[in-house]
Structure formats: C-alpha cells, structure tokens
Design a protein around this nucleic acid. Structure first.
Length: 379
DNA sequence: AATGCGGGGGA
DNA sequence: TCCCCAGCATT
C-alpha cells in the first residue's frame, strides 16, 4: 500500500483505499477517547485561536488553567485588543515563550482595527497575522471554520514518521514539506477539524515518543514501523549540540523599604518581564563582585553587597542558568538605566503585580527568602 | 537553513 | 539528566 520513504524529502504515496480505511479507523477511535478539553467545548474562532497559541510547544495539562483565566479576563477579541500589553503578560506569566502573548495581542488589535473585529476565515488573511504560522493557521481554520488544511506539529510528525517509516529527521531543515504533503494527503476533508485533532490526540495518548501503546493503537495495522518492530526508532532525529551553562549574579537592592526592579527590553529573552538587576559572572570570577559591577553598569548605582540571599538553578532550552542573588544596599545615588527598559522601586506587596520570570519566582519561593526580605524592608 | 525563544512533565 | 511538547520569527 505504501513504498518505504527514502532518506530524501520524497513523501510516500498512500493509495486511496488505504487512506479511507485509515481515516475511518482514526475517526472511530477518536470519537471514543477524545478528552473533554475546554477549547473543545466552543466554536468561537477567537477562543480556539487562543488555545492553539498557548498549546504551542506547551503541554495540554499546563495550558488548561492559563486558558481558562485568559478567557475569563479577555472573553472576546475586543477585550484583548483594549487592554495593554502588561496586562496580557501578567496572565501569561510562567507560561513561557512570551512573544506569543505579544504577537497575539498585536494580532487582536489588527483584527479589530483592520478586519472589522472578526477573526478572518481565509488562509491569506489569517496566516498574515503576527504569531500565526502554518500550524496555527491550519488548526484554527480547520477546527473553527471546517477548512481543509492538514496540521503538522510534533505529534503529527511522529505519527506520520512511524506510519510510513519516513526517514527524514524531524528536527532538520526541510522536514516540514514532506510531512505537510503527507498530512494533506491523509486529511479527511469531510471533517478536517476532527481529523486534525484526532491525529494529534493519537500522538499524545497512544503514539508516544518513548513508550508507544501499539497494542491499543487503532492504526497499528497500517503502520510500517509497527510491522518492522522499529516504532521507537521513529521519528528520526539529527544530533543536536550540547547545552551550555551560565552563571549570573543579581542584587536585591533595598532603599526606604522598597526593592529595585528592572524591566527587560521589549525584544529577546524574557522580553518585557521584570527582575532584580544583575549580569553574567565570568567563569572563575567572584559572584558578589560581578553583582556589584552589573548593577553599576545597568542601573548606575554603587551598591554595597550585604550578603548572599539565595541561589537558583533554572534550565532554558539552550543553556542552564545558575543565578546567585545578593542582598544589597544603596543609600544614595539615583538610577540611570543602561540596558533595561524601565525600573521601579516596589514594596513587597507590589511585587506580585508585575510579570516576573520563573527564576525570580523560584528565588522568592526559596526557603527563608521572603522572611529575610520582610526583615530587611522593615529594618 | 539555522537559531533564539520558557517552562514543565515524564522516564 | 535528558527528551519532548497542538511552533513562530528572524537572520
């Protein structure tokens, strides 16, 4: 029914009879096992859009509470367009990939201002919005509007790679096209939204990366890798480079009972989020001196490092961070920014109102930190 | 075509 | 510890 896929980008051909049988098996399975997720209870294209943005590189379980809060605060695209970015970031706090929030907010304003407030139901218009790539365009248009676009995400790639023993590395350049071709070929144009979700659900619930449940898989009789007993060898993946490590030092600068926070620039890592000012520690250098120097460089304050407050480890995709946080005093001098977008002296109570990134939350939640801060702020 | 961009969950 | 997750933008 299929021929093996070669190492090049040539997609497999699936004969129509197999295609139809496969769709039926998948649809029947999905009807039985589909999870009751909040975004599956609505037809609202805006709500479905929000869910797809949040689900980007993020697991369902993580997304659910964020999705619910987001739609309670911004029930329509008009609400979202009216609020300012900081309010959106505050709801996004902890979810990661903050440019998603930035882009979604920008896109909402574009829809309201230039598209009559209606989420566009055509590919060119919707795909042109910031933060909308091939995946989100296909997902929203198929699920909310029934349009015949096949989605390709990590789950779909894994399922297809196994079904057709596709040899092309999923993480390599140029892998998208062949997978998209197969996905479109396989798509059930009668109910594209259901079909797309079914493939992804299969990838999440059955066709798992490490321990696939092939015994319970509705597609095992169509699966080339299953027949060859090589399921876990797919999808192919090219080697990736090792992650580096970085050490940073930051200071909690206290003056008149308030803490100094700086806002990260509008672009780049953790854009727009707030943190304690600090900077990198050169390998072998003393963290407290690095803290002192970084604060002088970034906010123009000459601080006195009073002592070590807490140490935080945090892993990003491309590097691991070890953050040393010191208690500092700076009785005089005024702030002159060099790098941060803004600064603010806040009370402990106000700390929660600003969007902070995860490493800062980890620091604040660490043993004894909040007690120490309370004492210092009073004293 | 390659790289930057978070954070969490599971093995 | 490492891998992977309902990807997109930028260069």
């Amino acid at each position: 029914m299929t021929r093996p896929t070669s190492i090049d980008a040539e997609p497999p051909i699936i004969v129509p009879a197999t295609r139809a049988a496969l769709r039926r098996a998948l649809a029947a399975w999905y009807e039985q096992v589909r999870r009751d997720l909040p975004w599956r209870r609505t037809q609202d294209p805006y709500a479905i859009w929000v869910s797809e943005v949040m689900l980007q590189q993020t697991q369902v379980k993580t997304v659910v509470p964020y999705y619910q809060r987001f739609l309670e605060c911004f029930p329509t695209i008009g609400h979202l367009a009216r609020v300012d970015l900081q309010a959106v970031l505050k709801l996004w706090e902890g979810l990661g990939y903050y440019s998603r929030a930035r882009n979604l907010h920008r896109a909402a304003r574009m829809v309201v201002e230039t598209m009559g407030g209606r989420v566009p139901d055509q590919w060119p218009a919707f795909r042109s919005l910031p933060g909308v790539g091939d995946y989100i365009a296909a997902a929203v248009l198929s699920i909310a509007f029934g349009r015949p676009y096949g989605v390709v995400d990590g789950n779909v790639k894994r399922v297809l790679a196994r079904l057709f023993t596709m040899e092309i590395p999923v993480n390599g350049a140029g892998s998208h096209k062949p997978f998209q071709a197969v996905a479109d070929q396989l798509l059930d144009v009668e109910s594209p939204g259901q079909h797309n979700q079914a493939v992804m659900e299969l990838g999440a619930a059955v066709c798992a990366p490490r321990n696939p449940l092939c015994e319970g898989c509705p597609l095992s009789r169509f699966c080339q890798a299953f027949k060859a007993h090589t399921v876990v060898q797919y999808p192919r993946r090219s080697v990736r480079r090792a992650v580096g490590r970085q050490q940073w030092a930051a200071g909690v600068v206290i003056r008149n009972g308030r803490l100094l926070l700086t806002q990260r620039p509008a672009a780049g890592l953790l854009a727009g989020l707030w943190e304690f000012p600090g900077g990198p520690v050169q390998t072998g250098a003393a963290p407290d001196l690095a803290c002192n120097r970084a604060i002088r460089d970034m906010v123009g304050l000459e601080v006195h490092v009073e002592g070590h407050l807490v140490s935080v480890r945090h892993a990003y995709t491309h590097f691991k961070l070890q953050l040393e946080i010191f208690l500092c005093s700076a009785p005089q001098g005024r702030v002159r920014l060099h790098g941060p977008a803004a600064f603010r002296w806040v009370t402990l109570a106000q700390l929660d109102q600003l969007p902070l990134h995860k490493a800062v939350h980890k620091a604040l939640a660490a043993e004894g930190v909040s007690e120490t801060l309370r004492r210092c702020v009073v004293g």
